[in-house]
Design a protein around this nucleic acid. Sequence first.
RNA 1: GCGCUGGUAGCUCAAUGGAUAGAGCGUCGGCCUCCGGAGCCGAAGGUUGGAGGUUCGAAUCCUCUCCGGCGCGCCA
Length: 589
Amino acid sequence: MIDFATQLTHLLGPQFSKEGLDPNLAEVRRSARPDLGDFQCNGALAGAKQKGENPRALADRILEALRGETMLRETSVAGPGFINLALSETALAEQANRLASDPQSGLTPVPRPLRVLVDFAGPNVAKPMHVGHLRATVIGDSLQRIGRALGHHVTSDAHFGDWGLQIGLLIISLEDEQPDLPYFKPDYNESMWLETPPVTMEDLDRMYPAASARMKEDEAYKERARKATAELQKGRPGYLALHKHFWKVSQVALEREFTALNIHFDLWKGESDVNYLIQDLVKQCKEKGVAVPDQGALVIQVARPEDKKEVPPLLLVSSEGSAMYGTTDLATIVEREREVRPELYLYVVDQRQSLHFTQVFRAAEKAGVSEESRLEHIGFGTMNGTDGKPFKTRSGGVIKLHDLITSCTERAMLKMQEGGYGQELSDQDRQTTARLVGTAALKFADLSNYRLTDYVFDLDRFTSFEGKTGPYLQFQGVRIKALLRKASEQGLSEAPIQVLLPEEKALVLTLDGFNAAVHLAFEKRAPHFVAEHVYGLAQAFSTFYVASPKILDEKDEAVRGSRLRLARAVLTQLELGLGLLGIQIPERM
RNA sequence: GCGCUGGUAGCUCAAUGGAUAGAGCGUCGGCCUCCGGAGCCGAAGGUUGGAGGUUCGAAUCCUCUCCGGCGCGCCA
């Protein structure tokens, strides 16, 4: 099915062509002045400009040609040349029924699907996920869901950070703690492998910050770590074995978080997975003359004459002989080109890394690995505390994602208890629901902000059941489910939708806007457009719900059936829309 | 210093170059013999940081400027 805005644009397009104008000028959108019409087209203004004539006259001619169009009830030209279009009752009712019977709720796939690779979350092996990972994870997940909903062929990759200096640091840190482990013996081989990991997640969690801090002050310590990193990358068996242990231990903790957030990846690849490609990559870059020696390292110059800022070269091989994260990023593109062949790459990573991605993308182009135009960095702002500074614990430490999820879940449970809701649920169901509500609070708060702006974390506000929050939206869904459940229990059936009340019309027009909102969200790589739409839908439903009291008691079977069907259509879209944000609606809450 | 990014209602945030800049929270005033009122309706609240410019039309684009956040070769 096709939404109204598109239908109307198609209707006006030929008229613009007939006038010798670009049919793209015919673009129709929801009216900013509902008192004047349902939709508007502003193309006559720009078109008249091009032709050097009066915009109102042009608008009049365009409308003249539309006379007798059954879709339209009324048309008018207002102001300097705005074209106002009001839909006929039949058109509204027909569209409402199409929406209600469409399992996709009006969502249409893109005409040309792309193979899209979404690289997001970027957790680090050996480091628990913290608040900083939340946005990358939630935004990336939403983009993969939106992309799929639009018919794109999406491949998501968590892209673990598991090959850099951090691993070297852990290796020497462990060496200092347990020097007798076989992995440190120069002659280590696989027969000496111990099934029991030498460390727990807690150990890693403790060791890494300490080692990282020491490195900043102790130059010799840093040198050791760099050497260990280079040796690991060269394939020292004992170090590879430790890497494997670290990886496995970390993965358990990481999966716990992703499961709690209901986020899934097609690929769980990491930097270490492309190590096998690096030697060749470096060699080829050298042969092509793309990589040049510089201060003991090997770099790819990516500066351009037109640059307004200084763009430093990408470090391909450090003076220690190790791969840097730009190197693995590049090698990862090589692998993806072979295995996925993406037409579009989306890197959902903190905005602060934009310079890094500029370097990587340019280097990829220069090295002939990929095309810069297919590579996009999707940056985002930071999550701040109520003081406006990056979110920290009271003692100034980094907040772990796990603790964040837990506190949201606990707060959700508290709110449910306070309101006396969910009492009919079993303890286990209540716990599951609380988690659904808690993560909805977290996700919606994040996704309702435009990604590039920083936002303030406010647990109390996010978990509130009133206002523009995830739990509020779930609650609206739960209310509709309750209504439909009751209708079904009473044996009441649905009927074709009739658009009688102004609130019903507003609701139908809102439903019809879903498709555009989702497309816009993907085009802008900005899920908040979906969040905005879904919230607007919930509001429009509430207004309708109050305006049509006691649907179940309605004596007119046709009216009752119509409203039930409309409610169901809203629920369908609410579930789909929230689903695109990674939010589920519980049965009860 | 150079660059990126943000600055919109008291607070937190929206607004694909279009008409009268919208929500939530908070404040004030209404609506409960209610299908889940955690809702709905209304009011107050804005020189869109500032100054120029482009345009029929600017929160949006350009220039300058002020304030905040961030980045700028061997960490990721």
